[in-house]
Design a protein around this nucleic acid. Structure first.
Lengths: 328, 328
DNA sequence: GTGAAAGCGCTAACAA
DNA sequence: TTGTTAGCGCTTTCAC
């Protein structure tokens, strides 16, 4: 069996309370006893039982992370940053993946709550009043990232809308007149939280209007490449294909290459996210970069502050940058 | 405060034991009482406290995962598979990242042990007798993936050596006479567990010998691209650059493109891993594919079986496949 | 400075 | 069928 404080107490001829005082650096114990206890604990390779401690303390030093998967965007980098920062602050990380299933997400949240996580970092696919009320029930600190829910929850992200608008400005300044916008997630409007995607789209439309560009073709279907089949790409009427994430942009690039449509002469391509794989792909994709690791770190810092000092660290929206590649 | 079984017991006018029987579907309780308890629990939105249950049951229904990071190879896919399978079997997943730091890895393992995870899936960077003994101390089920430790621990992986040998056979059959092998991790020999990388290298050398190819240039340094600077790549003496992972191969491809060295005419490139990003990169990299998700699933199944039925499901090495791209 | 005792929320063995 | 009791390993309060 594992060594417990009782075992140590028996060997040292002291009480469990005293062992606790020694082990956890509490006051009201003599140097001599402390050293003796510490030495025995060391010798016996004592390892504290956190489940017991959690029960009595009511906290677990654990953060729960809810993502829909690890494929998309730069989630791997995000998780890396979260895990590192969390452990730096003494916390452990439960990760749960929801597969973009709203109901599944609630299951995940309840699992985390029941395991008494001290806080949750949530990239939700749920939305609305009802969900908001649902979250409130738990009285657990929650920080949302990417998909916004409401003012009730701390939010860490970037100014998606403005970033996309600026991207459009940049494209227009490069002489593009016609636009295609690709964002399949927009089809989930009303069914799932697509805040981030909607913001990007709004920013896109703002840019189009202010730049007096002609009415864009907006594609919201999963088989978006098929919709490009009939489109006539010609150098004379430069078309920019704006994609709401890099992964769509990469598919589009593959599509254009297959059709021998020159990039960026006949068709320009714009991405969003600046995933790290881009450096291996030519032409270098023009895209929007934002500090993904920082989002993770800030989220952790904020929630830990809430846990320990009962106040979130309010984060203003983080910066972004247009990466000027060869595809526009 | 949270609703506890005591609250429910008081309201229903029964004892805590009875509530427990109802909630956990145990025998020895009348239908009537059970329904009443269930109804009240539902109404009060009772949520069980797993920390308490864990303490008394001595298990947490949690698996700990130890990886060095999420950047490399197809770890995102691996984690996805592990998380999904684990939750399917009723387990939750703690993820810890070690940054390839052996000492850090031990800290992670102890954290997991102290949090009483029921089992650990370990992609270790440690090795040797001492580490083996260290792990034995914990009496916790462990399944190792990728980096092998010893017969003491269940292992899930592929036949790396044979896969690489077959890759070399394939390259030789394509008329390559000269070889360069790139594997910077080999420099950590003796300092860190590089089993997987060593196996691949051994397989490579076996292939070279059996194919009677000339002595290869083996590069084990981090700045491996510099070592290629002086090499003369010519169509007349076709050289194959074999990389121990796709990421090195992608860097090499970028390098060759920059130097205008035609692929595969003057230099062929071989990767290993078949990371999903390859489909966006041209030329299509020739590489070795293996079922990464299956590795995760099998590891989970095996360890859960050990936890619940005290026997690992022994996994024979999983299959692999040479993906014939355009780079060889 | 130290010990004794109560209790965190739940499970399980034993009585009734 | 149900209640009672005794913990799981730790923290914390209150005596001494």
């Amino acid at each position: 069996m594992r060594v417990t404080i009782k075992d140590i107490a028996a060997i040292c001829g002291v009480s469990a309370g005293t062992v606790d005082r020694a082990l956890n650096n509490r006051s009201g114990i003599s140097k001599k006893t402390r050293n003796k206890v510490l030495k025995v604990a060391e010798e016996m390779n004592y390892q504290p039982d956190y489940t017991a401690r959690s029960l009595v303390m009511g906290r677990t030093m654990t953060l729960g992370i809810v993502l829909f998967d690890l494929y998309n965007r730069s989630f791997a980098q995000l998780m890396n940053a979260i895990e590192r920062k969390a452990r730096e602050l003494g916390y452990f990380v439960y990760i749960t993946l929801t597969d973009k299933n709203p109901e599944n997400e609630r299951v995940c949240i309840e699992y985390l709550i029941n395991r008494k996580v001290d806080g949750i970092i949530l990239f939700t696919v749920n939305e609305g009043e009802k969900f908001n009320a649902y979250l409130s029930k738990f009285h657990t600190p929650i920080v949302t990232i990417f998909n916004y829910i409401s003012r009730d929850w701390e939010y860490v992200g970037i100014h998606e809308r403005q970033a996309m608008k600026e991207a459009v400005d940049y494209i227009i300044s490069n002489g593009y007149k016609r636009f295609i916008y690709i964002s399949p997630p927009l089809a989930y409007e009303g069914k799932s939280n697509i805040y981030t995607q909607k913001e990007r789209f709004i920013g896109f439309m703002e840019g189009i209007r202010e730049g007096s560009a002609s009415e864009p073709l907006v594609i919201k279907v999963p088989n978006y490449l098929e919709k490009l089949e009939d489109y006539s790409f010609e150098p004379a009427k430069k078309t920019a294909i704006v994609c709401s994430t890099d992964l769509y942009a990469l598919e589009v690039i593959n599509f254009l290459k297959e059709k021998d449509i020159p990039i960026p002469e006949s068709a320009g391509v714009m991405g969003f996210d600046d995933i790290d794989m881009l450096k291996y792909i030519s032409p270098r994709l023009t895209t929007v970069k934002y500090p993904i690791a920082e989002i993770g770190e800030k989220a952790v810092e904020s929630i830990v502050n809430k846990i320990e000092k009962d106040a979130y660290i309010s984060i203003s929206l983080l910066g972004y940058e247009i990466i000027k590649g060869e595809s526009i």
